[in-house]
């Protein structure tokens, strides 16, 4: 039997397949479709210190092999999460990880502090890469100085596994990855969405209310793979790869490029059972290639 277990910081995952924040709700929404316990982990919807209504409609535009979104971190805030959602999701037989976002460093810190006390919250993913909020979000992730500062401050209050989600909208993603590694991040996850836009040619109006939005789906996969490879070669901490993963082959590709684990994102909308199929596909691949453990495959692209 091939070993699917992987480690991210102190966190042991039963397999390397997790679901990306903003594409999987709080897991509950998928309970009709799959056994959530078969996943390595679930990254729940981006959570902020105070409730957010998000951006105006329209928030979505389909694009060739992908989509743009401009949701803008709509969520009910961390207190609502702790009181109403956590009691439900803590019973799931997988790691539930909150994606934390904010407009100021104080927001991030306060939000992380509230989550640090939750017994069954083994990790958080620091979202310094949301392209759809006016203040904060990606602004923190596109400068090395602010990325390191927010990581440093959150690290002080969050003793468990700290994953920092990186923006691809930068000149050198490996420089930022090294910066947050130096501040004590246990892992980095990449990539968040690419800043993009689309225009309706008949009306000449932008397809998104915010004009620009975040591009995701298979169209970004080759760029995401390249960035995972770059970051894998730049840092010692584990890399969690994502960007357009639809099938097990995509996941293996990310692992070969250096990802210790992966997140399935946008494709959950199209096939809500995709994540579990990917777990099975990875297992079969390892058996077929007589590879005893996922760990033996990480970054093992042959050049």
């Amino acid at each position: 039997m091939a070993e699917l277990k992987v480690h991210i910081g102190d966190l042991e995952l039963k397999n390397p397949v997790m679901t990306a924040s903003g594409t999987f709700g709080y897991g509950t929404e998928y309970a009709d479709f799959i056994d959530l316990g078969r996943l390595g982990g679930i990254f729940v919807k981006g959570t902020t210190l105070t409730p957010r209504q998000g951006n105006d409609y329209p928030r979505m535009a389909e694009t060739p092999s992908g989509m743009l979104n401009a949701v803008g971190l709509q969520n009910k805030g961390v207190d609502y999460f702790v009181e109403h959602l956590y009691p439900i999701i803590k019973e799931y037989d997988t790691h539930m990880i909150v994606n934390v976002s904010g407009s100021t460093i104080e927001d991030y810190v306060a939000c992380a502090e509230k989550l640090a006390n939750l017994e069954k919250m083994p990790a958080i993913e620091l979202n310094i890469s949301c392209p759809n909020v006016k203040e904060g979000g990606m602004a923190f992730g596109t400068s090395c100085q602010s990325a390191t500062l927010v990581t440093r401050e959150v690290r002080k209050v969050f003793p468990k596994t700290l994953i920092v989600k990186l923006s691809p909208n930068v000149t050198s993603i490996s420089e930022i990855a090294r910066g947050v590694e130096d501040e004590g991040a246990d892992a980095v996850s990449l990539v968040n969405t690419f800043l993009g836009m689309a225009i309706d040619v008949e009306s000449r109006r932008p397809k998104l209310s915010t004009i620009t939005g975040g591009l995701s789906g298979p169209c970004i996969k080759p760029i995401a793979i390249r960035m995972v490879w770059e970051v894998f070669n730049a840092v010692k901490i584990p890399v969690i790869g994502m960007g357009g993963i639809c099938h097990w082959q995509d996941a293996i590709e990310f692992i070969l490029a250096g990802a210790s684990a992966v997140q399935v994102g946008t494709f959950n909308f199209i096939d809500p059972t995709a994540s579990v199929k990917i777990v099975e596909g990875i297992h079969d691949y390892l058996e077929r290639h007589h590879i005893s453990s996922v760990d033996d495959l990480v970054g093992k692209m042959i050049v």
Binding site: G22, T23, F24, G25, E29, Y30, K45, Q53, G54, D56, Y57, P58, R59, M60, A61, E62, M67, N69, V71, Q74, T266, N268, F269, P272
Partner: peptide
């Protein structure tokens, strides 16, 4: 019939402004 991606409440793209918010 708002534009939607998932159809089951996770992408939060098809929101309508209501008296209860989005």
């Amino acid at each position: 019939e708002n534009l939607m991606a998932c159809g089951f409440g996770v992408c939060l793209c098809c929101v309508e402004k209501t008296v209860r918010g989005n």
